[in-house]
Amino acid sequence: MADYDDTYTESQVIMTAVKIIAPFTLTYGLFMTFHGGDAPGGGFQGGTIVGVTVLMLAFAFGIEPTRQWLRNSFITGIVTGGVVIFGAIGLGMIALGGEFLEFYKLKAVFDIKPKWGLEAVEIGGISLIVSGVIISLFFTMAAGFTPDRRSGTGGASGVDIDDAPDAANAEVSDDD
């Protein structure tokens, strides 16, 4: 019965409900990211919730408009930025004379609690990587499912290739 057009894919009840809760979920995702050290949560969970917020918007508003709203380069930027921050902090510890990601050096050199080093990795590194990976995975899958977009997925698959090493990187960092 309903003829779907590209900008109005969901019932407006769902659309408006998503609009209302989106700021709350995004805030909550970022809150979790910032409270990884002393509460449940952290970069992984927080990043996932941030990613989920975007997926929710995509469900409600349609995937194409959301993709236009969040440009591919932006997502790639998030992911690579996360990797750069992660690497910089980790290598920074080596520069201070420790091992990769050895935060105890912070205490020795700058008199900062090691907790803040972990926080910085969680916030700057992991959350960005995870949210970027979730969003780009979703868009990549969605692009595969849409018949008339088969030719136009160059940007999305580019993101996908970028993601593979990042995902591995993120997994490794889980251990510390």
């Binding site: 769902i14 809760i21 909550y28 919730i49 997926l55 929710m56 469900f59 409600a60």
Partner: peptide, 12 residues
């Protein structure tokens, strides 16, 4: 979080 994912699952 569970409530959020529950909503997302139903809609999706």
């Amino acid at each position: 979080i569970y409530a959020l994912l529950n909503f997302l699952m139903s809609v999706a």
